[in-house]
Amino acid sequence: MNIKTNKVGIIGSGSWATALAKILLENVNEINWFFRKKATIETFKQNKHNPRYLHEVEFDTSKINFCEDINCIVSNSDILIIAVPSAFLPSVLADVTDLSGKYILSGVKGIVTEENLLVAEYLQKYFNVDHGRIGVLAGPCHAEEVAREKLSYLTVACTTEEKAITFTQLLECDYIYTTPSDDIWGTEYAAVLKNVVAVAAGIAHGQRFGDNFHAVLISRAIQEIKRFVDQVHPIDRDIKAPAYLGDLMVTAYSQFSRNRTFGSMIGKGYSVKTAQLELNMVAEGYYATKSIHEINQHYKVDMPICEAVYNILYNKVPPHKVFAELTKKLC
């Protein structure tokens, strides 16, 4: 796989996909980019930026091959980068006829909820993509900061570190540092779990808890994440690394975190539906909460923070009641 010369396609048109497109064009001459609507493509070409996300990022559109036919993107790309909300992944890929022979880098920090599958598992089950051809993006890297070329760090996880190093060549640039990893399962699950914790942090903020409580919440949360990923995929990993702790911290604290924002609305008394409508973006943590709850019925890991969020979002227990119990469990 020659990263520098092979054709790269992006599936996704949101803020993270747009940020990844910006990064890619630092290293490759052109990209293929899938948009569902032809009108959106025409607006993009006219204005030189994504009409819906990260308007400040201006593109040289002569380097972008736009197409509203996803199979056109797939057939003309050797490497595919997927950056869509996990809840929409099945519908986005519904018309794809063949992914065989493709290398795939997943920027989906979520879980396919219908069957509670990680993205790598979903691609293998439904498209017969070998795990050795899949990479997973992890780490603290908000699209809004990439747009401003703020120094950011990404981890690329594959089944082997050698393959991960190859993928990093797509992403390394002046404002992006990369780290390879062979923990494809742990990084995917950690990315799912940190969104649930960010919702919890938002609820705590909405309930007017202070910085002291937030610090305890996050320190207990990383322990909770470690218990889960060690149970699901027991290998030697440093849970304090950026792919785990770093991603958790930025998602739980940042002003750009949609999961924290969503949780804050819930903590202030918004209904789930109202919060989703006002946010007008997908909060992966909402879907991840139910999936992790269901998966953990098998593993039975002690996860008081995730269970607290589940009781609020799905059992509709008032946040103040749930957090009154949670605060005791965090001692």
Rank of each mutant, 00 (worst) to 15 (best):
K102A: 01
G14W: 11
N47C: 09
F44H: 08
F213L: 09
R36V: 04
Y177Q: 10
W16Q: 02
I176Y: 00
S181Q: 04
V229A: 14
E42S: 05
E114T: 14
N128L: 11
N296A: 03
N128Y: 09
M265T: 04
I134H: 01
I203M: 12
T168Q: 01
T40S: 15
V57E: 03
V136D: 02
T43K: 15
K329D: 09
Y270V: 00
P180T: 03
I305P: 00
P304H: 06
P242K: 05
G132Y: 01
S291E: 10
S254P: 00
E121K: 07
F167I: 00
S264K: 15
D236N: 10
G12V: 07
V96R: 10
I3L: 12
K329V: 06
S152I: 00
L118N: 08
D238L: 05
D98S: 11
N280T: 06
A138D: 01
L326Q: 02
T179M: 11
S181L: 10
E284V: 04
H320K: 14
L330V: 06
F209E: 03
A288L: 06
L245H: 10
H142A: 00
S13G: 13
W16D: 03
K150H: 03
T159P: 00
Y126C: 01
T289K: 05
V301M: 02
Y103P: 01
L151V: 04
I312G: 06
W16T: 04
